[in-house]
């Protein structure tokens, strides 16, 4: 199966990820795999299957649950209902920092009953979280005010319609692989929300050189999961190695992600991209127009995922509190904002 034993206590784990090796998920998978192989003293071998080559990204949750995949890294956005509680990170205007999300989720996965129950009902054990960074609008033309959104067509994710409709813009779905071409040919005017790393990985700056930090903050997260029964079948030594690997990973993430974002920023700037921040009053105006609606949307998804409204609101409150706590303690600086404020 996904984690197959050879009788001598050695284990091979198939790790499936939806992105290429250079995206944050790919980097996280590589670090995690190499660390576990080292921590287990060579008893565990981890084979990484990237870009959805083994199972498509949208299928990875199911494949991990049933054992085709030993460890899957799954974005919450692929499963708005099944991962409705995890989608608490999509709560807008909380934090710009992926690293804060990760710290908060590590704690919530243990302390919050709703998030805990979600993973338990799926029969999976969350091991670690991977973030993408804060939301930016990636566009052909510069955006300096909300008025610049009017009439634009965006490549949409789940919440795009709700966010851009009040600004007179529209969203339509385009496969990630086709975003570049669709912008180039004028089928869409840009993509929103989009993180810096994804934009750079698809070279979107060649056709849409303007990245604008819009202020909603982080909007998605991915979780590394293993089926609970697969995990239970591992020898104690392997479980211990996994624990140590997770600790090493969480210590590694803040600096590694900062370095990653700095590299992406260099690449974008060298290619002539313009990174800027939407002015504060504009961001505030947008928040007033959409925050309540976005939260309604999250609640509706939670309801579909059979989470009581009060439970989800309690989870949101916990998330906000923890985010606030880690905002003040982390040394990590949001790379997207840093990229915008660096002298052009």
């Amino acid at each position: 199966g996904g984690g197959s034993g050879a009788g001598d206590g050695s284990v091979t784990i198939k790790l499936a990820i939806p992105t290429g090796p250079d995206a944050p998920i790919g980097q996280a998978a590589k670090f995690w795999a190499e660390t576990l192989e080292k921590e287990s003293g060579g008893r565990v071998r981890v084979d990484i299957f990237d870009s959805g080559s083994l199972v498509p990204g949208t299928e990875t949750l199911k494949a991990t649950r049933d054992g085709r995949v030993g460890l899957g890294i799954v974005p919450n956005a692929y499963h708005p209902e099944e991962l409705a509680a995890l989608s608490v990170v999509a709560t807008p205007y909380v934090t710009q920092k992926t690293v804060v999300d990760i710290a908060a989720l590590n704690e919530l996965a243990v302390s919050n009953k709703t998030l805990k129950a979600e993973f338990e009902e799926l029969g999976v054990k969350p091991l670690f979280f991977v973030g993408n960074g804060g939301a930016a609008a990636v566009t052909k033309a510069p955006i300096t005010s909300l008025a610049d959104f009017k009439g634009k067509r965006f490549r949409a994710l789940a919440t795009t319609d709700t966010m851009v409709k009040p600004l007179g813009a529209t969203g339509s779905f385009v496969e990630f692989a086709d975003v570049y071409e669709s912008i180039q040919r004028g089928v869409i005017d840009g993509a929103f929300p989009m993180d810096m790393g994804s934009a750079a990985s698809a070279s979107l700056n060649e056709v849409a050189p303007y990245l604008t930090v819009t202020g909603q903050g982080t909007y998605t997260v991915s979780v590394g999961i293993v089926a609970q029964r697969t995990y239970d079948s591992y020898p104690a030594a392997v479980k211990d190695a996994i624990e140590r690997t997770n600790q090493a990973y969480n210590a590694w993430v803040p600096t590694a992600f900062a370095e990653y974002e700095a590299k992406v920023c260099d690449k974008l700037r060298a290619a002539g991209a313009h990174v800027s921040v939407l002015p504060g009053d504009q961001s505030k105006e947008w928040q007033d127009k959409t925050e309540a609606k976005l939260n309604e949307l999250l609640l509706a998804a939670a309801a579909k995922g059979r989470i009581a409204a009060d439970d989800f609101k309690a989870l949101q409150d916990d998330y906000r509190k923890l985010a606030l706590k880690y905002e003040s303690t982390t040394k990590y600086e949001d790379g997207l904002t840093a990229c915008a404020t660096r002298a052009n």
């Binding site: 199966g1 996904g2 197959s4 949208t58 299928e59 494949a63 049933d66 054992g67 085709r68």
Partner: peptide
């Protein structure tokens, strides 16, 4: 390679996800 349960799961979902693609 991987036993009946895995093969059986491959059979259960591949016919759907290999065909439900907008492209």
């Amino acid at each position: 390679l991987e036993g009946w349960p895995v093969a059986s799961d491959v059979l259960s979902t591949t016919p759907y996800y290999a065909s439900a693609r907008y492209a």
